[in-house]
Amino acid sequence: MSTEVLSLSVLRRLEAESIHILREVAAEFERPVLMYSVGKDSSVLLRLAQKAFHPGRIPFPLLHIDTAYKFPEMYAFRDRVCAEAGVELRVLRNEPALAADANPWDLGTVKCCGFLKTQGLLDALRAGNYDAVIGGARREEERSRAKERIFSFRDRHGQWDPKNQRPELWNLYNGRIQPGESMRVFPLSNWTEVDVWRYVAQEGIEVVPLYFATEREVVRRGGQIIPAGAKTRLLPGERSERLLVRYRTLGCYPCTGAVASSARTVGEIITELEQTRFSERVTRVIDHDQDGSMEQKKREGYF
């Protein structure tokens, strides 16, 4: 040991905390599930789950609530990575809503999210009878998430009551629930965006190429740079253009803005984030569609 101080790096401390949380879930719940949404946080969560249960397999399935509006690159990445990791991936969509042509252009983002994400999620959780749902949300992301517990109680309807949360002391998580109730669990609560990227770098974790800058066909709309793929509807007077951009977060392509960036590697992304003056979710249209948007969505059952 000589004069070396036995002290873990910040990343290793975060990792140890997350692994502890994942193991508590596996030990205390009957039917846990890990929400996998293909983005960088999901990639990190998957790696942490692999570490937590090594040399065993991850003792719960992954669940992707697919709105059908994700980027094509995300579907390809999801299927390949989950196959390589040998994990069980369940994919569910709100088929009735999609059959009725639910889309953000006609419904508006609030209703579209309500149908395809929140309702899709609640239906899937009910169908799977899951009692613990692990998500990659971080407290740093958004101010109502800053108030979230690591083990966050949900009533029979999947609703969050932020004014009546269980006290959470030390690392003693109270996972006790009645049948029908459930727990949302957030192992990445204390991670920041740059922690996620530093961990991606340290561990060599693969992420969707959409995070890296390249020239992409986009359209400027309401202060955002929206991808202009084949299916994107252009409004009257709009014209698409090619710009050097990357995505800082990944959601549905109609509602996810790109950022002007030349960061083509993980290292360049970290450098960019250390200097940025804008928050991570500034490009997520749905965070800004009403006052207290995220809180309202969370109360109803959204992650």
Partner: peptide, 10 residues
């Protein structure tokens, strides 16, 4: 302030 809020900075 109603509930504990966690904040992060460096």
């Amino acid at each position: 302030t109603i509930d504990v809020a966690y904040r992060y900075f460096a």
